[in-house]
Write a protein that binds this DNA or RNA. Sequence first.
DNA 1: CGTGAAACTAACCACCC
DNA 2: GGGTGGTTAGTTTCACG
Lengths: 155, 155
Amino acid sequence: MSAKITMDATDRQILRILREEARIPIVDLALRVGLSPTPCNRRLRKLEDSGLIAGYGARIDPAVAGFGITAFVSVELERQQSDELTRFQHKVAQFEEVVTGSLMTGTQDFLLEVAVESLEDFENFLQSRLLRLPGIRAVRSRFALRKFIDRARLP
Amino acid sequence: MSAKITMDATDRQILRILREEARIPIVDLALRVGLSPTPCNRRLRKLEDSGLIAGYGARIDPAVAGFGITAFVSVELERQQSDELTRFQHKVAQFEEVVTGSLMTGTQDFLLEVAVESLEDFENFLQSRLLRLPGIRAVRSRFALRKFIDRARLP
DNA sequence: CGTGAAACTAACCACCC
DNA sequence: GGGTGGTTAGTTTCACG
């Protein structure tokens, strides 16, 4: 795990392919980057061992899953002490509706990305879940029409 | 592709596992959900064919990749005509710094998530790239300390 | 970095209950 | 819908150029 790696153009190409098709066989991957399987596999292991590739995950289509609506919700707490922030994070992670959550600098509020089926579900999430958490000072919601980019940045 | 599927608890369990470990062998997956490989594989294909599983991707650790700073940038354009919005999306997708981009409802502005190495890089991105695009009315940036949730929502 | 071979593992399919 | 077994395909490791 975790070492400084020297990446060349081939490594970057491997990453680019794997970001989209994580289940491609090594032989195919090797063909596409112009190597033979063995050195290609060696590079892949290097990328995995370095921690750059942290794992592989299935891409689940939110639209097919029935969650066509994405809302971004800013939440400011009344107190920004470290333990309060941590507690809020743990609580919010329990809500399956929340797909991303970031702690922001400055006033140390939270930016949550919420996936729901309908506006009714969103209202329900707000009233029955989020706003029931203690210590919330302010909440502001905005809705996304569509996400037109969603990817990782490569070195 | 794309059909309404009847999901049971086992299917959901498969999704939950695959969301984290997309490269798990079918035999192991089958063991963990309490099936034998064949029916487990059938369920998996069903999930893939329905489009619920849109693909598999490598998780690339932004910190290891050197992009420790995430900024959320709101961009409002001077005009919100459909072709202007589309053009902006295409331009913004060229910027490798932009990892997610959403078109928002209401004033139809954009919310971009930008991954950079340093604050200098961010300034550079703003001045040399984003603000050079024509027709931008307003930009507002906020920085994330850390992302504490990042996942897909499951049915 | 590339080749080829051996041992192993996984995916797939036809067929069964 | 779930299970078995055999075939095909993919992966890993290694010695060597």
